[in-house]
């Protein structure tokens, strides 16, 4: 509970009650319920295809047009929408992949998203974010010339340059080496201290276990595990999820 010390009132940031998601072919999520409060650091656990990314998309309002949400889901006391208003409500989302069709420089890419930001855009804040990920030296590079890790850092800066109340990151550590992963965890920890709620889908959860406040375990779209005592690492669940399965069912 030590991390919660400097947060005065805990506000409900995200709320899901019997939330299901239909993708026009199958149920991606079934009956998922959870509550997330201000200052939470929530890690979504689950095998590939368990519905981690989809849950983040529901919260961010970026679902494909034919997908349907059933049940109750509220983000900052409003239903998520896909009309581009989530950003101005204070929700920042970083997807897993990003397709680059229009080649531009890093500078142009960052200014592109900065320009449309409807939240009060804080130059000092974004400059600090750029400095954290050492992106300033990449500003003149073209996106097509970046390495995987550099591109991921640029994308992280883009997503973290605003003062969001809810930060949703889908595998933010992909392609990052250990140094930048440490930077990322530090930045996320600071954001959380400042009052934001952070939700990450991760596979390298051991690196963050010391400051996770909520664990949510998903299996084939169902919430099978939930732990919201800070500092408690769900070892038994993780072992059942990843280790035993891979030993007993190598193809599964």
């Amino acid at each position: 509970m030590t991390h919660h010390a400097n947060i005065q009132a805990e506000e409900l940031v995200a709320h899901a009650h019997h939330l299901s998601l239909w993708s026009a072919e199958r149920w991606i999520l079934e009956n998922v319920s959870f509550d997330l409060f201000q200052g939470a650091f929530c890690v979504l656990l689950g095998c590939n295809g368990a519905g981690k990314s989809s849950l983040l998309r529901v919260l961010a309002g970026v679902l494909p047009p034919s997908w349907r949400v059933v049940g109750r889901c509220e983000v900052l006391s409003e239903v998520p929408c896909n009309s581009g208003e989530m950003l101005s409500r204070g929700v920042s989302w970083l997807g897993q992949h990003q397709h680059v069709s229009e080649d531009m420089t890093v500078q142009e890419y960052l200014s592109l998203s900065g320009r449309s930001v409807l939240l009060p855009y804080d130059d000092e804040f974004s400059a600090r974010c750029r400095a954290d990920f050492a992106v300033d030296s990449l500003l003149g590079h073209r996106l097509s010339a970046l390495s995987g890790g550099q591109w991921q850092r640029v994308r992280l800066v883009q997503a973290l340059s605003i003062r969001a109340k809810l930060i949703l990151l889908d595998e933010p550590d992909a392609a990052l080496d250990e140094r930048w992963r440490r930077v990322l965890w530090r930045v996320l920890f600071e954001r959380r201290q400042a009052g934001a709620a952070v939700v990450v889908a991760l596979h390298r959860h051991l690196e963050v276990q010391s400051f996770v406040s909520n664990w949510i375990g998903l299996e084939e779209g169902r919430l099978v595990f939930s732990e919201d005592r800070p500092g408690v690492y769900p070892r038994a669940f993780v072992e059942r999820l990843f280790l035993e399965k891979s030993l007993t069912r190598p193809n599964g």
Partner: peptide, 13 residues
Amino acid sequence: SFGSEFAIANGVN
């Protein structure tokens, strides 16, 4: 051009 999800998440209707 970076995908409609990126655009939506960055405030484009």
